[in-house]
Amino acid sequence: MKGKKRAVGVAALLLAACLALIFLTGGGGGQEESIQAVMRDAVLHEENHVALLGMEVNPSVASGLTVTGLLLLVAALIRIFAIPRFRYVPGRFQLVVEELVSFFRNLAKSNSPHRNGFLGAYIFGAGVYIFFGTLFELFGVQAMTTHGTSIALPAPLSDINAAIAMGFLSYFVILSGGLTSNGLRGVGKTLKDFSLPISMSFRLFGALLSGLLVTELVYYSLALSFVLPVIVAVLFTLLHALIQTYVLTMLTSVFYGEVTEPHAPKPPKNANKAAHAAAK
């Protein structure tokens, strides 16, 4: 009985190996576009567009909307079914949710001790969006382009437009914090770092794009698309998701804390003179 099972197993393995060799040695599969075209499209999204409400948009917009819809759905489910059942001694799921919220709240508190209510909510939203948006590309959700071809939806922030939106919004959040805390002085402090929105945008875009490009490169060759993507894609994507979430939220918190720091009034000149005289 055992011998028969072993023989069937060996035969199945041999068949699988033959099929793999047939596919690997075949000429077709994934090489209809040149590598240059694939990379260029991954960076610029010039070729493949998706139809959305009568507009032709980049696939990342569709990705962003999908991620937003999924996240809001999950949040609504948690709000309806989980949060009313929260207990003072938390269970595992409650612990995960509380830890997620506490992480961003504490990040805001530690970097901006004087004003952090709005900052905590903002970096929570941004962090969740960057993390889950980056992980979204792992699922390879398919969408139909305007040319009628099928593409896997990329991470929303692998589009420079999304990165610019995120970078500039973060900058305006910092600016608003400076304005509400220190008035024009806060605005001045924020405008001093005028390169911040560009650096934040490009850092986010570059980091996420590099992951996408590596994955595209790996997927481009059929021979490399077995086993290896499990390591490369998952590992790179997870690392990018974690690192970029941390970097953007940390930078936003630090700059927000800097511009919302209360301005210490200068001591009057007479007081300085009196202090010098007393020292002499």
């Binding site: 917009v61 962003g64 909307l65 991620v67 937003t68 996240l71 809001l72 949040a75 609504a76 948690i78 709000r79 949710v97 919220v101 905590g120 909510a121 903002y122 929570f124 939203g125 941004a126 969740v128 969006y129 929303p156 939106a165 995120m166 919004l169």
Partner: peptide
């Protein structure tokens, strides 16, 4: 898209 998400997450979760 992001503003809707941030607002929704704030109201529903945060």
């Amino acid at each position: 898209n992001f503003i809707i998400l941030a607002l929704g997450l704030y109201l529903l979760l945060y």
